[in-house]
Write a protein that binds this DNA or RNA. Structure first.
Lengths: 183, 183
DNA sequence: CCACTAACGCAAAATATTCGCGTTAGTGGG
DNA sequence: CCCACTAACGCGAATATTTTGCGTTAGTGG
């Protein structure tokens, strides 16, 4: 994430070790035990390195969360825009409904940097890929803004402001408002 | 916020003093200077009181933010559901677009308690009031869920994930999807 | 191979957090 | 009104964390 002036060798190793340490501790230990000194010990570096490089635990967590939210590839191709969106949303919601998933989003929002914008960009990009594939197939144009505003945003709102699980019928209904069911 | 077992006298005074101290410091000082000891000094109490009662700075800030977001009264009555919503949204967005406004929402989301749910409840309640007034006037029923999902959620998404100002034409367009413009 | 310097390690100093214990002051019963 | 009870607070010691100065290490570019 950090556009380091010196991205090579040691810096990269330290960053990888720290990220791995955060992911490990985030899995094993309670959140209240997730402290900078603990992460530093696990990563084999001194705390001051983390303070200097990330500034605070919040910003470090946001950095790690952004990396975990970065898509590893394009959304699955199901043969139709509607199918692609449905598949992609289902996976996204499943990942983000879990307690650690919700925590990740909050970590992103709790930082001082550009993590939130980056995250939103990831989501939008995935939708754009789906839209582009649909266009190539000759399907009617997908309104990406509408998907963000009328589907992604309500889902995110639920995830952030409510602890209840997200009803599949509900978000499929949202999707149907933007993209008519295939077939 | 705290459903104290003993809400009277001293406890209430301490809470009021602490909330006031947070609001003051939040206005005067930079956010990085907003620390528990600083708040305690300003409020005239010892830090340990804050730690015992609120647990952490995050939870204290969330508590204060919830109080600031609690509506002070019903939305203005403009004579129509559409007008009420427009007026209410305009005020809400204006308040929340500012840097401290956005910070408030993030404070709410960064806590461990029920602040987010409480906040969402506030918003929903306001919309319900508008809906009830409309019903009493004989207007067509307002779908409160639709307002939350298709208007409030997208606005919140923008506020949280983007730093750009919110375009009035855009959110009025969202509103028009749910409530046709008043004739 | 060398000069340059970003990034790191280390340790001391400054701050923040936790905890035990005594005290204060709401609360409820007589 | 008075008293017993105890939640909530104050204080200070003990811990834990964050910050900072300075020497060292190791990428980077010539």
């Amino acid at each position: 994430m950090k556009e380091s002036l010196r991205p090579g060798g040691r810096s990269a190793r330290v960053q990888a070790a720290v990220h791995a340490a955060v992911r490990d501790l985030l899995r094993d230990r309670a959140r209240s035990e997730l402290t900078i000194p603990a992460i530093a010990t696990r990563a084999g570096v001194t705390p001051s390195t983390l303070y200097r490089r990330w500034g605070s635990l919040q910003d470090l967590l946001a950095d790690v969360a952004v990396e975990r939210m970065r898509p590893e590839g394009d959304p699955d191709d199901t043969g139709s825009v509607r199918g692609d969106l449905e598949e992609w949303l289902e996976q996204y919601i499943e990942e983000m409904t879990s307690v650690p998933g919700r925590a990740m989003t909050r970590d992103v929002l709790g930082c001082t940097g550009a993590a939130p914008r980056q995250c939103a960009a990831f989501l939008r990009r995935q939708i754009e890929v789906i839209a582009a594939r649909g266009a190539a197939r000759g399907e009617p144009a997908l309104d990406v803004d509408a998907v963000v505003d009328l589907v992604v945003a309500p889902v995110m709102y639920r995830l952030l402001f409510d602890t209840a699980p997200v009803d599949p019928a509900w978000w499929r209904g949202l999707l149907a408002r933007v993209v008519p069911p295939a077939g």
